[in-house]
Simulated assay, not measured.
Amino acid sequence: MLYSTFTKLNLIILKVVHIVEALEGGVYTYFRDLSNFFGDDGISKNIETTIVYSSNRKGISSEKVNSEFSNGVNLIHLNMVREISPFEDLKSIFKLIKELKKINPDVIHLHSSKAGVLGRIAYFLLFKKKKVFYTPHGYAFLRTDISKSSRKLYSIIEKSFQRLFGGTIVACGDTEFEIAKKIGPSKLVRNGVDIPPIREYFLPHQNSKLTVGILGRITAARNPKLFNDIALKFPDFNFIWIGDGELSHLITSENIKITGWIMDKNIVFETLNSIDIYLQTSLWEGLPIALLEAMVLEKPVIATNIIGNKDIVLHNKTGFLFDNIDELENYFEILKENKTRADFGKKALKRCEDLFDTNQNFKQLFALYQESFSAEANKMQK
């Protein structure tokens, strides 16, 4: 049991509430794993975990969440919208206040930009001092699909809210941590994946053609146009996009297969295991979960040289980082060799085991909650 890991820590029972609006893709996987860790019998005896979430994102429903998240955590569905909407946002804030008053948590952990704004306003209006943590999962002001003025606005909001409401930023990746330290008090707890269940899908295989794939929603963040351009440049390779999305019309190259939405995770991991190289074409990231899942399945990675990707991929060891499509010819040539791919893949798995094991990283989060709560309790006693 996980409880045995913590028996020496003189634990204090506390209540933690997580608030998230952006429950999709990697964030969904993060929360599913978080629920399994903190919902474990041993852990839940010492920490009561509640997840307040919105199911407005594509492919997410309360039924899905209830069926895949641990019974050991409390789940509260609360409507939040992604875009800025004063009327809807105000309704969400009052609902959050109502739920927080009922729970009376010791710790509030906010995830992604929208929950970071709504949650901090709700916290302020509670008029009760709580420990507040905030994980951006990729700062909104780093997005490249929005105007420069919008990015500036998001940057002002992030810095202003940190200054006004305080709290500790919990960065999910090393570069995000470096940025966060310039905004406010910060800690690093990396994203990770649950390695043993994913390893069950690893099987060596041999494709007749080199097969290059990506897993995720087809959105601006994943840059489907670049993925398509790469497929056009390398017509002798097979390409596969595991997923679907609103920008699927940008995928036109005949050597690309789009699987569509796959609801069965067994099929998702079997398909991911069938590729030879994982290609991450993102324009921006927090710390991409799908990329980690591919590395656990010993896939060498070719990824855009951006925040998130460069925190995971070791250039010329576990894969390659690129700034320009012209660099790829050399990288694909190197990775054509089975032996080279296998060598890169083993190093990729080892890197995940060392740094991106979700159970080890959630232990850090657990300790962070305990440390901050104990410090606050000691301060109140003095």
Rank of each mutant, 00 (worst) to 15 (best):
N305H: 15
D323I: 12
Y331R: 12
E270R: 13
I240S: 00
E298F: 03
N338H: 15
I312R: 01
M263K: 12
I312G: 05
I242V: 15
L247T: 07
F320I: 10
M263P: 00
F237E: 09
G243A: 15
F227P: 05
N228T: 12
A221S: 15
T318S: 04
D276V: 02
L314Y: 07
N324F: 00
Y331Q: 15
W241V: 08
L250K: 08
D276E: 06
E285Q: 02
L335V: 01
S282Q: 01
L297E: 00
Q280F: 02
V313H: 05
R341V: 03
K265N: 12
K257F: 14
E270P: 11
T271S: 04
W241Y: 14
L247F: 06
I275Q: 03
N266H: 13
F332A: 08
L279M: 15
A221T: 01
N338E: 14
P288A: 07
K257I: 03
E298A: 03
K233M: 10
D236Q: 07
E285Y: 03
L247E: 05
E285N: 11
K233S: 10
E329H: 11
D276Y: 12
L279R: 12
G245S: 14
K336V: 07
I240N: 00
G308R: 14
I275Y: 04
D311W: 01
P224M: 14
E333F: 08
K310H: 12
T252C: 08
V268S: 08
V313T: 07
E329V: 06
M295C: 14
S253Y: 02
I325M: 11
I307D: 11
N330H: 02
V296K: 09
D311C: 05
K257H: 10
L250C: 12
A342D: 09
K317Q: 11
M295S: 07
N309R: 09
K336W: 03
G260I: 02
D244R: 12
G243E: 06
A342P: 02
I307L: 04
K310S: 03
A231H: 07
I275M: 14
Y278Q: 13
Y331N: 15
L297D: 01
M263I: 08
P288E: 12
I325D: 11
F234L: 08
D311T: 02
I302P: 02
N330A: 15
I262V: 00
T340K: 11
A342I: 07
E333I: 10
G286K: 09
L287V: 13
N266A: 04
K317P: 06
N223T: 10
M263H: 01
F269T: 11
K257L: 12
D264M: 13
K265L: 11
G245V: 06
M295V: 02
L328R: 08
I251H: 13
N238T: 00
I258K: 15
S274F: 13
I306R: 11
T281C: 14
I334D: 06
W241F: 04
G319D: 01
E333S: 15
G286R: 04
F269M: 12
F239P: 01
K336N: 05
E293I: 10
V313Q: 02
A231P: 08
D244C: 13
N305W: 10
N330C: 05
L279F: 15
